[in-house]
Amino acid sequence: MERAAVSGHDHGHEHGPGGGLGLAGPIALLVVLVGVAVAGTLAGDALDGPRLGAFATVFVSIVVQALPFLVLGVLLSAAIVAFVPRELAARALPRNRALAVPVAGAAGMALPGCECASVPVASGLMRKGVAPAAALTFLLAAPAVNPIVLAATWVAFPGRPEMTLGRLVASLAAAVAVGWLWTLLGRTEWIRLPGGGDADDGRPRWLVFRRAVAHDFLHAGGYLVVGGLLSAVINVALPPHWVDSLAEQAILGVLVLALLAVLMCICSEADAFVAASFTQFSPTAQLAFMVVGPMVDLKLIAMQVGTFGRAFAVRFVPVVLVVAILMSVLVGWVLL
């Protein structure tokens, strides 16, 4: 039975040797990085009002836009943890793990939430005993291929239905491929779930529920702020049109827009409009922007570090990035 370790319950308190430091390290690093980035951006001539103002507005807007989805996500996750019987969670997916992965990917199409909601929900599913491979596929697929996102893509690329189709196919393929890779190579000990508790230990369910909500929110929320800070720095620090000169190179163009998707942290419901604005780039590069963004961006990476631990994120994030780019290129080559 594949089941991720739950810290807090299984490994005692976080302030034991290793546990506390293991979290403090990356946090200290992130804080220093953000501090340096902010200081660098705001130093010198950049310390003018408009730039600082735009930075503050973009930073707050990313957090304000994400908070309701994060709250929804932690409510769902805590409800799964506290109220769904363990047997039901296990039975909802096919027992065959190779088959459970695509089913989880298809299930992602039904949850119209942004990526901020899917991180805590995936964590709740794992705590309930759902195989990590299936939960991770759900985590990747839900923000990328839900109906709202596909509709937005349809509107953003008028007269080009192949962009919406390409997004659906490439995103699902990437999510399922990562799930299968995890089934083959993944190790559960890489994942450290926040110890939000489980209803099966005899405590009142309501207490389990509200503790899990607060706990999950605090875990992911601080990291969401980190992602928002970094992304806002990028937004005001990059010179305008710096990418335009790279647009004509086929492969470099794909990589540049994929990198930009990671840095800009745009909600999956809005990223199609931004992708459409990169008119000088190839359709494949625009597709890569939309496939990578909902799966890997600074705010997601930060929240995954907070929710699943650093050991998980350093392995998961690069793999997802590579697979997402490969799938975009493949689908772009066939369809676009």
Partner: peptide, 27 residues
Amino acid sequence: HGHGTPRAALLLALPLLTVLLIAPAPL
């Protein structure tokens, strides 16, 4: 369980401080 909360959670105060201290304007 409270002890597992990462110190990064402290940053949750930052958006409120930004709104109160910098009072951002629309873009």
